[in-house]
Write a protein that binds this DNA or RNA. Structure first.
Lengths: 246, 246
DNA sequence: ACAAAAGTGTTCCTAATACACCCATGA
DNA sequence: TCATGGGTGTATTAGGAACACTTTTGT
């Protein structure tokens, strides 16, 4: 078949000497702090978009998987080892011109980070820095590249996933009260939820186990819950064939 | 912040002179023919995996979007213009070593093709050829690269999506009977469906419009239906922020 | 008239929603 | 004792699942 062999020829030709795009991973890292959903941003030090905020990310090395690259970035930016962090491939953005320098194709990941595990230096509390958590509703308008779309895409996915999975648990410390869990959901979804229905649903999912502990805080102590079988931090491999985007 | 500026330095450095992976798009094209769900495969003409079957795909050119690259491949392999074909980004596969020659990162797409629009030359009916539709249950075991995983991933996504969207319509010609639609669903899902419930559900989705036509075939003629507002072939841009994998 | 596929409704059950009061504690 | 957040149950509704017979045509 003529057409076919010509195509194959081009394929090889291309593979050997041709111009190749750069490939990066970008990370949309979510955490919940002070009643709001936050995304990590980094201030760019050089052109293009110098001084503007951008998602953390970097080039994929030749010897690492995409997931490893994402986990490495995660670690570098937050000091959180990727173990026990939910990390999921989001979408790949590759329009020519999304980076003015050269063709850059970026594989975006989204990550859910328990804020109690973040190094203090990146909580942004010690004043102005080049790496900072922004509440999603207070993001600067002039974010670099197409990172705004990437962030929107991640947010959409996160909200979507809350509806049919227990993925929200990844944002909380090992033990938590149901009220804490509920207000996390409310924060992310931006709407109020019914307490009784919420508890019913969560408990019926069979992923929570009550502990013997209570959270004391001024009033009636609240029962602490934890994950059924530790955190499913085997997230890594499973991720690949999940619903999500599909 | 020291760590940060070092990172930025590496970024620039990398961007300029470093080794880059190749980027391809691979396509999982589904169609339904003779009561079975088929995937298009191409027989490789050279090493590696010479003589083995592989998903159609090719290098992403520097001046085209990923979607355009996928649409181009689609057209080249089937002769179907990508207009009116459902095309959705699936997942990006990039493990080092998935291609023995060099690092190749592939952005996989899945496509749903109405078999009546496929050029005869690729229906495989004119005998043996290097491009062929395989029923998903009769795929050769020794598919090239990691294309088997990619195919599985696509199949999972397709089945998943049938549950909550009307995406199955993309596999049928412009007009079709409800029985045809149902047997399409049964073919893909691999299970029998209840006729009354199926019809109820489909009609309640509000995406079908009865036509004035009937399909005559030996017995009681069946009413033909069509899409509500032509085929939603604006699929392209919408795709990006959909549920899917999320 | 009969064979073969088209077409049609009701019952049951499960899951989601809406909704209001008592409980345990610290101050 | 009172203020505050923790904790619980029931009635209603909507959607999915199970299920059998009548209609229309060609031969």
């Amino acid at each position: 078949m003529k057409r076919q062999s010509q195509k194959e020829f081009l394929k090889e030709y291309d593979a050997s000497g041709f111009e190749r795009p750069s490939v990066t991973v970008d990370l949309v890292m979510f955490t919940v702090m002070n009643e709001s959903l936050n995304v990590l941003m980094i201030r760019r030090g050089q052109q293009p978009f110098s001084g503007r905020w951008a998602l953390p990310g970097g080039f994929v090395r030749m010897d690492e998987t995409l997931e490893e690259a994402a986990a490495r970035e995660l670690d570098e930016e937050t000091g959180v080892s990727a173990n026990g962090v939910y990390l999921e491939q989001l979408y790949t953005f590759g329009d020519p011109g999304r980076d003015p320098r050269t063709r850059v194709i970026t594989v975006a990941y989204f990550a859910l980070v328990d804020s109690s595990k973040i190094e203090p230096r990146v909580t942004g509390q010690e004043g102005i820095s080049d790496v900072q958590w922004f509440p999603v509703h207070e993001l600067p308008k002039d974010i670099a590249f197409d990172h705004w779309s990437i962030m929107e895409c991640a947010l959409k996915r996160l909200r979507n996933k809350l509806e049919y999975t227990a993925v929200g648990l990844e944002l909380l410390p090992d033990q938590f009260t149901l009220t804490e869990l509920q207000s996390l959901y409310e924060t992310i979804l931006g709407e109020e939820l019914d307490k009784r229905n919420f508890r019913k649903k969560m408990l019926s999912m069979g992923v929570l186990r009550p502990t013997k502990g209570y959270r004391k805080g001024g009033h009636r102590p609240a029962l602490l819950y934890e994950f059924m079988d530790a955190k499913p931090s085997s997230t890594f491999k499973k991720t690949r064939f999940e619903r999500g985007t599909g």
